[in-house]
């Protein structure tokens, strides 16, 4: 079986030996998930079990272990997340419709007004954003985005002005364009790779940071505006 797999000599035998077990693991996980779904009649449980099948997919893709495989792991993960979010939203909307009720996206019964909520979030958010800026790229974006999200969620209990949300959404869009432009430069003018790299890295950093803007759009619809 290994004869059909092209392996460069620099790869250590351990990694090569892991390939087949990993593929089988992925498929077995998928099968376990499918068995679970076939037994389970509750929709919510079926949804969670479906996610296990998706994780099997990630294992198989990751088993390849090259940079090309990495370029599929990320989109695969995103597809997986997008689908599970969409489907769970669907499930919720269906159940709400069945009950004839409406509900907030985050039904928090909080009405706290403590001083630490006004001072600490700013501080923590600044640290997270700064650390994220230092990391740059996807990971940095995630960290910095976490910071902003944390800030926003902590202030949520006192109501966030809707203008802030729309601003965030706009910046996120512009940053995404930067990222795209960076990639286009990679393809079209490879000599300017450094510029492209910076555009892409910081574009994606800002974009992931302001992914909170998406929450903002939801905020405008779902939360009570001030």
């Amino acid at each position: 079986m290994t004869a059909t797999v092209l392996v460069p000599s620099v790869v250590s035998p351990v990694v090569v030996a892991l390939y087949l077990p990993a593929i089988f693991t992925g498929i077995i996980i998928g099968l376990i998930g499918l068995f679970g779904i076939s037994y389970q009649k509750n929709d919510l449980h079926a949804l969670i079990l479906t996610d296990i099948v998706g994780i099997g997919m990630l294992i198989i893709v990751a088993a390849v272990g090259t940079d090309l495989a990495e370029s599929l792991v990320l989109p695969g993960l995103v597809v997986e997340l997008a689908e599970i979010m969409a489907i769970s939203e669907l499930l919720m909307s269906r159940e709400m419709r069945r009950l004839g009720k409406t509900a907030d996206l985050i039904p928090l019964p909080l009405n706290l007004d403590m001083e630490v909520l006004t001072t600490a979030p700013i501080f923590l958010a600044i640290i997270l954003v700064a650390y994220g800026a230092f990391l740059s790229g996807f990971t940095g974006g995630a960290v910095a985005g976490g910071g902003i999200l944390f800030y926003v969620l902590s202030r949520l209990t006192r109501g966030v002005p809707s203008n802030t949300w729309e601003g965030l959404a706009g910046v996120s869009g512009i940053a995404w364009c930067l990222w795209l432009v960076g990639f286009l430069i990679f393809f079209a003018f490879p000599p300017y790779w450094l510029l492209a790299l910076f555009l892409a890295a910081f574009g994606v950093f800002i974009k992931v940071t302001f992914k909170a803007g998406l929450v903002g759009v939801m905020g405008r619809e779902e939360f009570k505006k001030e």
């Binding site: 992925g26 498929i27 998928g30 998930g33 499918l34 779904i37 479906t50 996610d51 099948v53 998706g54 099997g56 997919m57 198989i60 893709v61 599929l72 695969g76 597809v79 997986e80 689908e83 599970i84 489907i87």
Partner: peptide, 11 residues
């Protein structure tokens, strides 16, 4: 969602 396993896995 289930089909993403064979789709990406096959690729």
């Amino acid at each position: 969602m289930i089909a993403t396993l064979p789709l990406f896995g096959g690729a």
